[in-house]
Computed example of a mutant assay.
Amino acid sequence: MPVRIIICGSDRYENRNHVRIVLEHVNALRDIGAIILTSSLGVSQFALAWARRARVEVIPCRSVAAMLELLPDGVVAFPGGSHTRATLYAAGRAGIPIYMAPAHGVLPDRSCVLRPPVTARR
């Protein structure tokens, strides 16, 4: 059954590839049906781009309270500031599971094709 996931993190977050890798990992585990966002910058911008490619519904919200009213199944949190902390605090009080995105490089990039190095011929 597809799940609704809140995505939160800094508006200044710049690692698009990391957001994609984490969302692909979560999607493989939980089958994301919709992502819930409040911003249009940083993490939210990259999550929106991922959702479009993955054909996942995007639900924009204006506040943390509005996000919680949608009864999300979980939160995926990237590094962020006060808004991210407020989202995590509210989700924790509501009993919503929180997944803290691991540091970049911890999860394998499944879309990256690694090829052996080309050796010089003599």
Rank of each mutant, 00 (worst) to 15 (best):
62 R>A: 09
83 H>E: 15
113 V>A: 08
48 L>C: 09
70 L>D: 02
71 L>W: 12
33 G>D: 08
115 R>I: 13
80 G>E: 07
89 Y>Q: 14
60 P>W: 05
104 H>V: 13
92 G>W: 03
93 R>F: 10
13 Y>G: 02
81 G>R: 02
110 R>A: 11
96 I>S: 03
3 V>T: 09
70 L>C: 03
9 G>K: 11
64 V>N: 03
97 P>S: 09
107 L>N: 05
3 V>K: 09
46 F>A: 06
6 I>P: 03
42 G>Y: 06
113 V>S: 07
12 R>H: 13
22 V>C: 03
82 S>G: 09
47 A>Y: 00
108 P>V: 12
109 D>A: 00
45 Q>F: 09
2 P>H: 04
81 G>D: 05
112 C>Y: 06
69 E>R: 13
16 R>M: 07
116 P>M: 12
83 H>I: 14
74 G>Q: 08
108 P>Q: 12
74 G>L: 09
74 G>E: 08
111 S>N: 14
29 L>K: 14
32 I>R: 02
96 I>F: 01
64 V>L: 04
114 L>V: 15
75 V>F: 02
93 R>E: 14
15 N>W: 05
35 I>N: 00
90 A>S: 14
107 L>W: 01
54 A>F: 00
90 A>I: 09
109 D>Y: 01
3 V>G: 00
51 A>N: 04
92 G>T: 05
34 A>H: 04
63 S>Q: 06
70 L>Q: 06
80 G>I: 10
113 V>N: 05
4 R>I: 00
118 V>D: 10
17 N>Q: 15
77 A>Y: 03
107 L>P: 04
63 S>F: 07
107 L>Q: 07
79 P>M: 12
87 T>Q: 10
20 R>A: 11
16 R>K: 13
119 T>R: 15
19 V>F: 01
6 I>R: 01
10 S>G: 11
3 V>M: 07
44 S>W: 01
7 I>W: 02
31 D>F: 00
82 S>E: 14
101 A>C: 06
24 E>D: 15
39 S>D: 15
100 M>W: 05
13 Y>P: 03
69 E>A: 13
93 R>N: 12
74 G>M: 11
82 S>R: 15
108 P>Y: 01
40 S>N: 13
94 A>K: 10
59 I>G: 02
43 V>C: 10
22 V>T: 04
2 P>D: 08
114 L>P: 08
53 R>I: 05
1 M>W: 02
104 H>Q: 14
86 A>G: 11
73 D>T: 01
99 Y>W: 14
62 R>K: 10
88 L>H: 03
72 P>R: 04
4 R>D: 08
14 E>T: 11
53 R>D: 14
63 S>P: 00
4 R>E: 05
13 Y>T: 03
118 V>A: 12
117 P>N: 14
39 S>V: 03
1 M>D: 13
44 S>C: 12
91 A>Q: 02
29 L>I: 10
117 P>F: 15
20 R>N: 13
4 R>V: 02
16 R>G: 01
74 G>A: 14
113 V>R: 07
65 A>F: 13
37 L>F: 00
30 R>V: 07
